[in-house]
Simulated assay, not measured.
Amino acid sequence: MIRAGIIGGSGYTGGELIRLLLAHPAISLDFVYSTTRAGKPLSEAHPDLLGVTRQVFSGEVDAGVDVVFLCLGYGNSRAFLKEHPFSEKTHVIDLSNDFRLQADASYLGRDFVYGLPELYREAVEGAQNIANPGCFATAIQLALLPLAKAGLLTETVHVNAVTGSTGAGVSPSETTHYSWRDNNVSWYKPFTHQHLGEIGESLSDLQGKGAEVLFLPVRGNFTRGIFATAYTRYEGSLQEAEGLYDAFYAQAAFTVRSGKPLALKQVVNTNFAHLHLHRHGEYLLVTSAIDNLLKGASGQAVQNMNLIFGLEETLGLELKGSAF
């Protein structure tokens, strides 16, 4: 069994990761570290685990586990690794954005590989440490990568993506409490969202200097999922575009093109990313849908772990969605 630990297990991504690892046939979840909940049952923070496990939060870290997942806020992963050095043999999978950009990918002797399997699968398989992509970044990159590889992102790309309230984390805020979020929609961080940096680096790896991506993130009045639409000028036919996408994702375990328009529910509670292409005049519209807590966070982290340890990529991620 692969011995795993989680740092910061009381939030949404931590809770999903606990659920996935407890059910994973190759994993022994040795500890879930918390400074504020040590000794308390995991099910106290995550009621869906009631009856699933009697495990409690730990106040201590085992530095010799095979893999550790960091589910911490911005900047906290660096601080934690500095204060709690793990064994050189321990694989670190970070779910924050501390190590995603190339300029930040080396820290305290650890080199982090950007963990988008559809683009960097071979690098992930040989990685010691993983910087797990952001949720918006995952949805948007999967929508655009085939075009970038073909050198077809030559003009401005317009992206609109709506996310559920869980994307803002478990701590309540002015824009996440029920009376504000329900029956409400709003945008935030227009054209400046922090995930644009990692998106730009991945597209540049495929195409070199490409088109500008104008991204408008939107808060939705639901809890889970990201529904993203991206459009740009495109000279080819719809059939040619579909061929590009089918070829690019032919070996992808979880990214699938649909011939029909998408609905967000079909990917919620799964690790799938569903894509759809639509041609309108001189524009190609690409729709992308993921679960922000799974393919956009914890599910992708487990997917990366499977690749690192030579396991089946889908192991522990055979999750059933519900479209009704």
Rank of each mutant, 00 (worst) to 15 (best):
R3H: 05
A4N: 04
I6N: 00
G14C: 04
L17E: 05
A23V: 12
Y33D: 04
R37T: 00
G51C: 06
V65F: 12
D66L: 09
V67I: 07
F69L: 04
L72F: 12
Y74M: 14
F80Y: 07
L81H: 02
E88M: 09
V92R: 04
L95Y: 05
S96N: 05
N97H: 09
F99S: 00
R100P: 02
D111F: 14
D111M: 09
P117G: 06
A131L: 08
A131D: 11
G134T: 06
I140T: 09
P146A: 07
V162S: 10
T163R: 15
T166C: 10
V170Y: 13
P172W: 13
T176E: 09
N184W: 15
N184P: 04
V185N: 10
S186I: 14
K189F: 12
P190M: 09
H195N: 08
L196T: 01
I199K: 02
S202M: 11
L203Y: 08
K209I: 14
A211F: 07
L214M: 12
F222H: 05
F222Y: 11
F222W: 12
A228F: 14
Y231E: 15
G236E: 09
G236M: 12
D246P: 00
A247F: 10
F254I: 01
G259Q: 08
V267H: 03
V268A: 02
V268K: 01
H274C: 03
S288N: 11
S288L: 11
A289V: 13
D291V: 11
N292I: 14
L294E: 10
A297V: 11
S298V: 06
V302M: 05
L311T: 03
L315Q: 08
G316L: 11
E318I: 15
L319D: 11
S322I: 05
